[in-house]
């Protein structure tokens, strides 16, 4: 799963720290999310999408796993 958190955050001109405070997590979690090193829970995905005023599908892009 990929996401547009960094792009949307820069568009809104908010820092990682501020986003972390708004959704109630540590800044490290936002860093992990932006680097695509962590898939958030549904609750956190919802909270982040709400900060950007978008739906979860608009912020998080689900990619079908390749089947061989």
């Amino acid at each position: 799963m990929n996401n547009k958190i960094r792009e949307l955050r820069l568009r809104l001109d908010i820092t990682q720290d501020e986003l972390a405070r708004r959704v109630g997590v540590r800044r490290e979690t936002i860093v992990f999310l932006e680097k695509n090193k962590y898939n958030p829970s549904l609750k956190l995905a919802y909270e982040i999408s709400r900060v950007f005023g978008m739906t979860i599908e608009e912020v998080f892009i689900f990619e079908e796993p390749e089947t061989s």
């Binding site: 979690t29 962590y38 829970s41």
Partner: peptide, 9 residues
């Protein structure tokens, strides 16, 4: 004032 634990930790 950060949370000591969150879902990632």
């Amino acid at each position: 004032g950060d949370p000591l634990k969150d879902e990632l930790t």
